[in-house]
Simulated scan of single mutants.
Amino acid sequence: MSSHDATVEFEYDSTARARLVADSVAREIGEIDDDRSQTTIGRTESTVRLEIDANDTVALRAALNTWFSLVDVAEQTADLADATP
């Protein structure tokens, strides 16, 4: 499928935080993929890894923007949960 791809890794202070973020965004795998891009997610200890394969640069950019937004929301939500007594 792919003529363009990207791999992004997000490192966290703890395995628990990485697991929380990975589990949060993993729910979207398969839901937002289409015939132009596919994404896989993996986690090793405190690192979350997203691999995106796309047919073209526009689809790759759109997928990257989407996944960066999803990870950002998961991180912000986890921060709010940590700050709540």
Rank of each mutant, 00 (worst) to 15 (best):
T40K: 05
I29E: 09
L70N: 02
V21E: 01
R36K: 13
T40M: 05
V71Q: 06
A74M: 08
F10H: 02
S46E: 15
A54H: 12
N65Q: 13
S3P: 01
L64N: 05
A26W: 00
L60W: 02
E45A: 07
V73I: 07
S2I: 05
L20R: 01
A63K: 11
D35L: 09
A18K: 01
T15C: 04
Q38G: 12
R27N: 09
I41F: 01
L60F: 08
S69Q: 14
A16V: 02
L64H: 03
E31G: 11
T77L: 15
L20Y: 02
R17Q: 02
H4M: 02
G42Y: 05
T77E: 04
D33R: 08
R27C: 05
V25A: 06
L50V: 04
S24R: 00
R27G: 12
T57N: 07
A26Q: 03
G30Y: 14
R49M: 15
L64T: 08
I32Q: 04
Q76L: 11
R27T: 06
D72F: 10
A78Y: 12
T40R: 06
V8K: 06
E45S: 15
R49K: 14
R17C: 00
S37H: 13
Y12R: 01
E9D: 05
E28S: 06
A59P: 10
F68W: 07
T77Q: 10
S46L: 07
T47A: 13
R43T: 12
L80V: 04
T66W: 13
S37W: 14
R17N: 00
N65V: 13
D23W: 04
S2L: 06
T15A: 05
A59H: 15
A18C: 03
R19W: 00
R17S: 01
E11D: 08
V25I: 14
I52T: 06
D53G: 08
V73W: 11
A18R: 00
S46P: 03
E28V: 11
V21Y: 02
I52R: 01
L60E: 11
D13L: 01
A26G: 06
I29H: 05
Q76M: 12
S3N: 09
F10K: 01
I29Y: 08
L70E: 09
E75M: 09
E45F: 14
V48R: 02
T39A: 09
T47R: 14
V8E: 06
A62I: 11
Q76W: 12
T44N: 09
W67R: 06
S2G: 05
V73K: 04
D23N: 06
G30Q: 14
T40D: 05
